[in-house]
Amino acid sequence: MTLSDTLFYIAFVSQILLLSWYFPNKMISRIEHVLATYPAEAYPKLYPMPVAHYRIGIRRFRMFSRLGLLIGVAILLSVMFVVDHSGFAEHGYISSFWPAVYGMIQFVPFMAIELSEYSNLKLMRQVNTVSRRTADLQRRGLFDLVSPWLVALAGLTLAGVILFDLYLHGFNLSLGHDSVQRALVMLASNGMIALVGLYSLYGKKLDPHQTSADRSHRIAVNLKSLLYLSIAMSVFVGISAADGVYDIDFLDAALMSVYFQAIGLLSLGYTTRNVQAERTNFDVYKAEAPAAR
């Protein structure tokens, strides 16, 4: 077994456990904690649908996560014993295709749960009959919620990586060149991140009952998570750009696996760590709750 293989196996096992075991379990225990601590009888506004519906959702999420775990183990065993790597990558290294495709599969249950949360909030707005609405008379600007240094760091990392990539490839600015295409993809991805951030900051209030303090906290967590993701993406692209030049392509597969884990840690990990039920005001979901404050 080569160093490249060993590094990949370690990274891939970690990817399987982190994204298809640890985070799904953490997510399920959080939802079950909310269901148990804030029951529908006392907090009816939290549940626009019957509780049984949420239980079915949890079961499906658990099932798909376990399926993801099995797919991961199957990919690992195939890569170890079945796949002929010379057909997939140069120099016979394990292809980064495996952790990339598997990473995308692993995020499907999380995206599904995010979408179901979105439709739950939409229902919450539809059934909301409270005529009194409150808001803070305080401006909510980007730099009120995140440090300007973090924004500058994300911007500088992006610019630095694009310049580094172009420098490594002799500032070849033809559209068909890899470094130019990577730069365009980076700019488009960061543009998407910026749009999501702006929607989070200035977009519609999704939860009609959420307090202003909770909303600001949630927006701040979302924005920071997006900025960390942008930085991680830039660093990953920077390493990929250096790949061919510094002969480190034996690390490709392991790096791709680490990249997906970084995405998981910076999005799911950061959010679950910083948005906790104990720090959220659930009184607004009670039957006779006052309007959100």
Binding site: R133, L137, K204, K205
Partner: peptide, 20 residues
């Protein structure tokens, strides 16, 4: 409660928060 020079939320922010 609001002093001269205090910033106010943008139209979009206030409209979004009050669902107006």
């Amino acid at each position: 409660k609001l002093q001269p020079g205090d910033p106010l939320p943008s139209i979009r922010q206030l409209a979004s928060d009050l669902d107006l």
